[in-house]
Design a protein around this nucleic acid. Structure first.
Lengths: 323, 323
DNA sequence: CCCGCATGCCGGAACGTTCCGGCAAACCAA
DNA sequence: TTGGTTTGCCGGAACGTTCCGGCATGCGGG
């Protein structure tokens, strides 16, 4: 339980023997305050356990000190999103901001800006948030109506090409892809990367599309379709997070010894048998980058329309070694 | 980009032809306002797109309208925590509160109360948060110094007993347990439930302890220890989230055909081969309950010290069918 | 008619901090 | 000595909303 009333700037000022303005200036490094007075005020604030009242501060400054964060509630991507969320929170804390989670469009959020992870073009919540007019940064582009003020994105198409090169070098001649629909910029890039690679290498673009928040059954069905093709598919790239590990039992059951890769890495890919080659999207760093870009926008140090590239990596594991 | 200045209560009042006090009272259902006047004010607020300035409101009310949420950054539990977080956010939104994520003890948070998921007795961040004196609800008990104002917990020991009964009914005579250390109330309960069951049934309590945020290697090592025992272990209960699926490759490799169960359910348990029997902790609902309890505490409708039981379920799957 | 009560409005002050501009003192140059 | 500049303080007002208590009006009862 809380002991007594929190100290205010007036308490600190009285204790340090200065005006409230001097106390505020001393603690914030604003105005003109001598070093001696500044030290005295900071000592008093420390001794009193003074914590600024954010509501008062933000009322006066016409700001909130908070950014809103929205990620889709898709459990298959919980590992990715959890890391992303912690990254955004880290980036915000580094800039003395709080992060408020937004899971519905019910209330217009009172925040200084927004970070939207994986904004889906057909997500009404995202559309609503984009309509608030708040400074907004998206991780990957928004495929719906409207433009974010800032975008942090990765070169998924290029990385898919590199993965395909690796599969080809491992002996694959007939690769296939399971990918989510084009409402996600990420999924669209992966899809495009695959098609482009097939065009360049004279391969059939064998693709099955599933929903972004697809069930394991949907993934299984897509995989079965591909596995039934003749000539036989000899490499399978799984777009949806977690789907590669979900398919291991099916592949084992069908006695299919093909190369397997995932477009989203997670601890489960490493722990699978065999460990699965995957694209490490480095979600925590992506979160930090999104937060940083939003603050640059809020401070005016980056113009609206800024796009930043977030580097991703291909992690090779046993699932794509030639057998 | 934002079009123009947001409407204030003064704008609404002028538009509706009433005083600011009447406008405020009409929108909040406080004071004494006729139905006719109320309707007129709400119409004006709607037309103006009025959104209350939370900073002003909370400054006046000496509240923040925000609760702080802390969960450990343990990726192996991302599925559980993600659901828990979304549950807390849901519960908060239902009470018109925002949720701020707290990942470090660097700044004393300006929030009305705290929800701590899985508070570990040796976590310095949790200790710091408990020291703030803010009204605090924990999901499971805090094993360190200090007492939360409210606790939402489940009967893990009892559920463990039921799981053991099921394993015994499936033919297990020599069950073993991998569990995290006792810094987690949940882990301690699971451990106690296992030991109590073994005592009641004259079984050796075969247990290996791992850290709460254990690596897959640590789980593998613990499992190898248990698998090496003679007489042979015929059932394995995995405490750490995700560890049951992590062990499937090892069990397959060792040719061990034993019963396997997990103390934490997740989509991955369902997708494993075979699907793994698990305890569904229903994390999303747990999150909602924690938020609700915190608001009851803040409103004074529940006394400090309140404990509420959150029901959990045993989900039987192929991994514990007798072979 | 007068008094008490209920209803429905109202303005002022409060919340804690920051912004703005004023003022006094000290110093330096002409 | 006078004028200009710099430094370091200061009080008042502002931010948007809520709380508090006052007041006018109407109604009913004595």
């Amino acid at each position: 339980m809380r002991a007594d009333e929190p100290a205010t700037i007036l308490t600190v000022a009285k204790t340090a023997g200065v005006s409230k303005t001097t106390a505020s200036d001393a603690l914030r490094g604003s105005g003109r305050v001598s070093e001696e007075t500044k030290a005295r005020v900071m000592e008093a604030a420390d001794a009193l356990g003074y914590v600024p009242n954010g509501s008062a501060r933000h009322l006066r400054r016409a700001s909130t000190g908070t950014i809103g964060l929205h990620v889709p509630e898709v459990l298959t991507r919980s590992s990715y999103y959890m890391s992303f969320v912690f990254g955004v929170v880290q980036g915000a804390a580094d800039n003395d901001y709080d992060v408020t989670l937004i899971t519905s469009g019910r209330r217009t959020p009172r925040v200084d800006g927004l970070v939207l992870g994986d904004p889906l073009g057909d997500d009404p919540i995202v559309a609503k948030l984009m309509d608030t007019g708040l400074p907004t940064v998206t991780c990957e582009r928004f495929t719906g109506t409207g433009r974010a003020d800032g975008v942090v994105r990765s070169e998924h198409a290029e990385m898919l090409g590199r993965l395909m090169d690796h599969l080809r070098a491992s002996g694959a001649t007939r690769p296939a892809l399971i990918v989510a629909g084009d409402m996600s910029d990420w999924a669209a890039s992966v899809h495009r990367g695959f098609r482009d690679w097939c065009t360049r290498h004279g391969a059939d673009p064998l693709v099955r599309t599933v929903p972004f928040d697809c069930s394991a059954d949907e993934v299984h069905q897509a995989a079965r379709d591909l596995l039934a093709l003749e000539p036989r598919v000899d490499a399978l790239v799984c777009g949806p997070a977690g789907s590669a590990t979900d398919l291991l039992p099916l592949l084992r059951e069908e006695g299919r010894d093909l190369l397997l890769a995932s477009c989203v890495d997670s601890p489960a890919m490493l722990q699978a048998d065999p460990p699965i080659t995957a694209i490490d999207l480095r979600p925590r760093e992506a979160g930090v980058r999104c937060a940083e870009l939003l603050f640059d926008l809020l401070r005016g140090t980056s113009p609206a329309g800024t796009e930043r590239i977030h580097p991703i990596e291909l992690t090779l594991r046993a699932s794509t070694q030639p057998s």
